[in-house]
């Protein structure tokens, strides 16, 4: 390379006329490939941020669980393993349908894309619905700390809650430890709440993507947004993959 090719010397502005680029290429990128790479990489960096965001919650959980293990065990027994497992399954299947949606966009199949986006949306709604049922149950049982007069009855006297008692035969907790079940439920609501918030954002974005997909916006070879949204959706799935054993499966035997 010689100096004659160097920077900004002479040369007229606007080397390439605009018509050469596809309409979805933003002006400051040189090629479509660069645009895809950059936005995809940006999404990954954002997910890193999200990992650390949940990281703070997981750290708190770890410390509290080690300190108040009995309270965490009995708090966990109050969760429905049926709903929890069902929700895990729903979310994993939704991850699959999302992956298929990305595949459909890559293969430029509009019908399949709409189908899988729709399925993902429905599974997302189903997840939130089940979450709502579970939360409502906690509300009724006065297991929502901070807002709704917390009741330690089920932990001071497990027999008062026959449904759970029948299955686990928990021994009564000391009053001090029974109070710590509030910590468990605080973390339960903080973690599942933060996760559900991400789900809600995801579902809203899905609606937006679905509407745009109907106009063929993602089946013309430019599927970056679907791909990046897919990454987000899978990430939310991964968070749940960890929340499920940590919150539901503490010592079920």
């Amino acid at each position: 390379m010689s100096d004659s090719t160097a920077i900004a010397q002479g040369a007229s502005a606007g080397a390439a006329p605009h018509g050469e680029h596809p309409s979805y290429q933003r002006h400051h990128f040189e090629t479509v490939g660069q645009q895809f790479d950059a936005t995809n990489f940006a999404m990954w960096i954002f997910l890193l941020t999200e990992v650390m965001f949940f990281g703070g919650l997981f750290t708190s959980y770890l410390i509290m669980r080690n300190w108040y293990y009995r309270a965490f065990v009995e708090g966990s027994h109050q969760l429905s393993i049926l709903w929890g497992t069902a929700n895990t399954t729903v979310l994993i299947i939704s991850s699959f349908t999302m992956a298929m949606a990305v595949w459909s966009a890559q293969m430029r199949r509009k019908g399949a894309l709409l189908l899988f986006l729709g399925l993902t949306f429905l599974l997302g709604i189903a997840f939130l619905g089940i979450k709502g049922i579970e939360w409502h149950e906690k509300w009724v049982k006065h297991h929502v700390p901070g807002i709704h007069q917390y009741s330690e009855q089920a932990f001071l006297n497990p027999a008062s809650d026959p449904e759970v008692f029948k299955e686990y035969h928990d021994k009564p907790l000391s009053p001090g430890m029974a109070q710590k079940t509030e910590e468990y439920f605080f973390l339960y609501f903080a973690m599942t709440g933060m996760h559900a918030l991400h789900m809600v954002i995801g579902v809203c974005l899905l609606v937006y993507i679905f509407i745009r997909a109907r106009t063929g916006a993602y089946t013309n070879g430019h599927f970056t947004f679907v791909e990046n949204f897919g990454l987000y959706w899978h990430f939310v799935d991964i968070i749940w993959i960890f929340l499920y054993p940590l919150l539901y499966l503490i010592s079920r035997y």
């Binding site: 991850s95 992956a99 990454l231 899978h234 990430f235 799935d237 991964i238 993959i241 499920y244 054993p245």
Partner: peptide, 14 residues
């Protein structure tokens, strides 16, 4: 098991 599941999601779905 959770880590294995995560690895699979990251490697293939993502």
């Amino acid at each position: 098991i959770a880590c294995t599941k995560m690895t699979l999601v990251v490697l293939f779905f993502m």
